[in-house]
Design a protein around this nucleic acid. Sequence first.
DNA 1: GCGGACTGCTTACCT
DNA 2: ACAGGTAAGCAGTCCGCG
Length: 804
Amino acid sequence: MLMKDINVSRKWAYVLESSYKIKGRKSYVSLLCLAKTIFELYARYDPYFYINANNMTDKNVQKLKSELLELTDAGIGVVTKIDTVKKNVLGKPTNLLKVVCTTPSIIPKLQSYLSEYQCFEYKIPFALRYLLDNQIEPLSLVKYERSGRLIKKILDKKEHSLPKLKVVCFDIEVYSKGLPSPTGHDPIIMISISKNGKSKVLTYREVDKKNAVVLSDEKEMLLKFFDEIKNAHILTGYNTSAFDIPYIIKRCKVLGIDPVFVNGVPQVKKHGMITYAHVPGVVHIDLFPMVKFFDRIGAISVSRYTLGQVYKDLFSVGETTKEIMEDGNFIGAWDDDKKRNMLFEYSLGDADMTYKIFEYVFPLMVELARASKASLFDVSVASSSKLVERLLMYESIKCNDVIPPIPNVNAISERMKNPIAGAYVKLPEPGIYEDIVVFDFSSLYPTIIVSHNIDPATVNNECDEYYESPVGHKFCKKQKGLIPTVLKKLIQTRLKLKSELKKYDRNSKKYKELFPKVQALKILANSFYGYLGYPRSRWYSRECAESVTAWARHYIKWVMEEAEKYGFKVIYGDTDSTFLLLGDKKISDATKFLKYINSKLPGMMELGFEDYYPRGIFVSKKNTGGKGAKKKYALINKKGYIKIRGFELVRRDWSSIARKTQKKVLEIILSEGDKRKAVNYVRKVIENLKNNKIPVKDTAIRTVIRKRLDKYDVTSPETSAALKGVERGEKITSGAMIDYVITKGSGSISERAELLKYAENYDPDYYVNNQILPAVLKILKELGVTKDELLGRGKQQSLSGFFG
DNA sequence: GCGGACTGCTTACCT
DNA sequence: ACAGGTAAGCAGTCCGCG
């Protein structure tokens, strides 16, 4: 019929993400698509799960089938169909019953009803289920046939780079002192918006600025805001999930308008520590969790997670528009016609900064999404384990494997009770060394997994040829495991792109395109080992995880032994690295040795030449009478770059005066080799401290309060300072970063700890004895300098007289 | 009753 | 809410000391 044909169309669109809804007891998956515009399409799909039928007689299968088909919920049948299928469970072909249900929510109920049976895939989010089964990858192009809003058929799929996206970034300002209350009298007074970097501010009081859009009231402002975002592809902001979006929703309710952002009311959910908001009709990305995630995995490095600080750290600027409203008097600024412009600048600045941060993190987000086959939204609320899991789920379906189940609470706690032995760290001999060469394994754990076919399905099964790990587990050689297969592809793609990357200039377009791809593949590949040993993992395997680390220990120790045999002295090593002294040998001997090692390593494993260092220092562990400290060293390479690890100066919970002084000492020793100069420098700092010439700010110690203040078992300087702050009206909750100072007076250190903003002085004795001296002696002790020497009391009183 | 040794709690680092 | 290995601070307690 003509009518029908007109309605049907076949087109390409990017799939951005999926969700689902139930209509008339039928399940529909909605796909957020992007072609010329952004739109949603729906697909009819039925949720299902599997029951293991391998050990069931035909009769029992029949009985179970009819029992299930008769089950009802409120009088209506819940199972519509049961098929017998064959899929691999831990590598073994297994007979399964595929139980098709009406709605996703019935599946967990059926699974607990069927507690005597082994069920599979009963906890796959339904919207994901559809993508997995159709092997649709977010951000790829899909050709579909549709009738109206309903997808009839997926016709084709292909990968394609993303077009330029419409990004709308927003931020609200609230009229309040202290914690804003959306249901009380704290209205939203400004909403700043940045559309791909072009920013403006919506408000409803006169502001003398050209990017201000002055509406009649809060309600009109919110309606205008919804209008501004309606065509956006990406909606972003900073802490929007936990603050802006819930606040807007609540204000809408107070004002009597529908909080329909784009195509529905946002769903704000709390999952453990993280709050996330799904906004229908657009990809919502809250940059706050994103920044935290990227900081944790080392993709970026920020000192605090506030918008202003993140901006400062990412773009190396000293000041932001945050300083405009430093006094926090939003009420005063809003009510004062002369000051309102300041509020405007502040608000506009927030949107500008947020957009810049978005631009900064987005390329890596896209590549992580592509590499793990997760949507942008999923990446924005992701953890590394989720990304690995997502990729493995896709690949499982592709090769007809059953996705392993999420462990139950008992299994999780059982797994947690049994931690897995980790890496080997060689105890260093403290001292100053010359001519150090460092080797390290490239991607040690990933290459061990691939080269020994480590996988839950290949371990200890009946197989005649196997690799045996140092802890006695056998990994089949022939039948390739899912994890090694997937990981091998990631590593190989990364190596290919990395060598291509080397051809381009750092500022070229191609480099900027390739770099995040390489980075994403590395992040993902490096997460596999952690995922194998993660107690909540679907692919957890104690045998696999402990074999990975056992092999790692085996290989690094073997390299060290071989190096000694070759005539090098090995001074240190941690997990995947070996530090050796050239002695009377040359760098060319070291490379020859490296070649020899690599000729003996299996599969993808490779030892690399990290660098040559003319000088380096290893120090002793405190209160151990000269035993070496692990994970603490400093090396200087030929270019003069100093690589510092573990020292107090790299820790934020040391005062900046102590860190700065230790750094200076290290630099003087390593690049100039001048002991006297270092001693004199320290003496000067001590003198300044004693004369109260150091700014209090430089004595602040920074730390994160990781628990609720009432949950601490012991008093410590940070909790004591925080508690005193709370009494003065500060809001310090779990996760807060505080700066505190040890002040003059009597009592314990904790009793004298005050938040920086309330500290009127610092205690010179504390800073000399507990900060400067331990930090610099750590290094100078290796050169025979004593505490008394630094304090200008002469050498003769030194302890060496007693022990030497 | 004093001071050093030790333990437990806590944070932040290394790979 | 990816893993384990490690250093080090401070508070509190233990322990020896006729």
